[in-house]
């Protein structure tokens, strides 16, 4: 069964001057963890708001749990959990007061669905009397997730829950999402961190209001059109300059400890690459073919 269906959504702001969504279609299965991957300005937040009944699309249709987002907005609001991109809890209320309040908002109690938030809430418990505004970034997001989950929604919308959160807290956050998936909750989550894509069942890569591709992370990687080389040496900056100046280079991006390189012609150019770099006298030169990451794929699609 499909939990979320969007078909040919268009949305623009400022009387059409700022297009936000251009023909966006996707569907999310029940119990699926679906990622919207894309940088700021890709249109992720607009899509979330349309699906969460907060905005009306200019064109196109969307359904959540089989209900139309325009007509049946009231019914949808009973079933979804929504965590907006900005931290949206009451900063002057304590952790416990926030959770208790949102439980009441959805006509439930903390006890009723405690099993669902237990793992997360246990981490927050030592700080339960602390004001939400005084929590660290990672903790705030965990609390917000608790608040969005407390009424056991069937669909969860998480708009950039890990932005600005440190890598450790981010990892913990994704582990929680994996567990929630087991409960049969459909999750639509967006992130600007490409490395988080591999944690989703399927992802939609978005850029400037358009969907570039929708697939499982492994399929997206398999579709990478070329051989990818990881090149490293002692002087990485000089190496990058040299690689970009190389006539057979199709694209070269720095990727932390190595530069990721694609060549115009995989078969014929590999040998000349080795020769070219040796001539440039790079020390500790390493050239390997590697499996692309989602980030490589994303950049190849631009």
């Amino acid at each position: 069964m499909e939990s979320i269906v969007a078909s040919h959504l268009y949305k623009s702001f400022d009387k059409g001057r700022i297009p936000a969504l251009l023909d966006v279609s996707l569907s999310v299965e029940q119990g699926e963890l679906f990622g919207l991957i894309g940088p700021d300005g890709a249109g992720k937040t607009t899509l979330f708001r349309i699906l969460a009944t907060l905005l009306l699309a200019d064109q196109g249709e969307a359904k959540v749990d089989g209900l139309d987002v325009k007509q049946a907005y009231k019914a949808i609001r009973h079933r979804v959990g929504y965590m907006p991109g900005r931290f949206s809890l009451y900063q002057d209320l304590s952790v416990e007061e926030n959770l208790d309040f949102f439980a009441k908002v959805f006509g439930t109690t903390i006890q009723e669905n405690y099993y669902l938030v237990k793992d997360i809430y246990q981490q927050l418990e030592p700080f339960k009397t602390r004001k939400a505004g005084k929590l660290s970034g990672g903790m705030k997001q965990k609390l917000a997730l608790c608040c969005a989950l407390i009424h056991k929604p069937s669909v969860l919308f998480l708009d950039e829950p890990t932005t600005g959160v440190d890598p450790v807290s981010r990892k913990e956050f994704w582990e929680m999402l994996q567990k929630l998936k087991q409960e049969g909750i459909s999750i639509l989550v967006s992130t600007p961190y490409m490395d988080e894509a591999s944690l989703c069942d399927r992802v939609a890569l978005m850029q400037k209001g358009k969907i570039l591709d929708i697939d499982t992370p492994s399929h997206i990687i398999d579709k990478f059109p070329k051989k990818l080389w990881a090149v490293s040496a002692t002087n990485m900056y000089q190496l990058l300059m040299d690689l970009r100046a190389f006539s057979a280079t199709a694209a070269c991006y720095s990727f932390g400890e190595s530069h990721h390189l694609t060549l115009k012609n995989d078969a014929s150019d590999a040998a000349s690459l080795q020769q070219y770099l040796t001539e440039k006298k790079h020390k500790d030169l390493k050239i390997n073919t590697i499996k692309p990451t989602i980030e490589d794929c994303f950049m190849a699609m631009l």
Binding site: P39, D40, G164, Q207, Y253, F298, M299, L302
Partner: peptide, 10 residues
């Protein structure tokens, strides 16, 4: 570079 697209980030 928080939230910046991968190409611009580079």
């Amino acid at each position: 570079t928080g939230g910046v697209d991968p190409l611009t980030r580079r």
